[in-house]
């Protein structure tokens, strides 16, 4: 750098903070390769037909293979449809969400399922439910006066 005199202590700190940031980035990259991914770019829907076109016109939980489920959830003013998703312990569930009206959120406690739900877009994210119990999910994006009423649960039944 032309004519830029930097104190030696400041140089050390600039290097150390750069290394710290690099370490964080590498750790993040490693986790991405281990399957900790963000919702991606799914094909768009026509938001005006969400209530009439499959799969969101009749949103349901579908078993694709033993222990592997696809859960279609329509997130609307002010309810999740369906608001109960029942699976046996050890299941992997892939959630597909959209909205027919305004922006919403979908977050399942004690998991990394945490997505925005937008009209015309499909939010896709998965989770594995090993422990039996009830897992609350809520809407966490303001969507009108009934926003705080929106919740549901994933019910994980013990393996029989």
């Amino acid at each position: 750098m032309n004519g830029l005199r930097i104190d030696s202590y400041e140089k050390v700190w600039m290097l150390a903070s750069g290394v710290l940031l690099a370490v964080f980035l590498v750790a993040v990259a490693a986790s991405v390769f281990q399957g900790f991914s963000l919702p991606g770019d799914e094909p768009r829907l026509d938001p005006t037909r969400t209530m009439v076109d499959p799969p969101f016109a009749q949103p349901a939980v579908v078993e694709r293979a033993p222990g592997r489920y696809d859960a279609y959830v329509r997130v609307q003013i002010w309810a999740f449809v369906p608001n109960e998703i029942k699976v046996p312990a050890g299941s992997s569930v892939t959630f597909y969400l959209t909205s027919p009206d305004v922006q919403h959120g979908f977050m399942i406690e004690r998991t990394n399922v945490n997505v925005m739900v937008l009209p015309g877009q499909v939010s896709k994210i998965s989770a594995r439910f090993d422990k039996p119990g009830e897992y609350l999910f809520v809407c966490h994006e303001y969507c009108g006066i009934g926003h705080h009423l929106m919740s549901g649960k994933v019910i994980v039944t013990p393996k029989s």
Partner: peptide, 18 residues
């Protein structure tokens, strides 16, 4: 956490944010 945006762009913005 948004749908409709490819991970590549979210990743690039992560690096620039750092």
């Amino acid at each position: 956490a948004d749908p409709g945006i490819a991970p590549l762009w979210k990743g690039l913005h992560t690096i620039l944010t750092f």
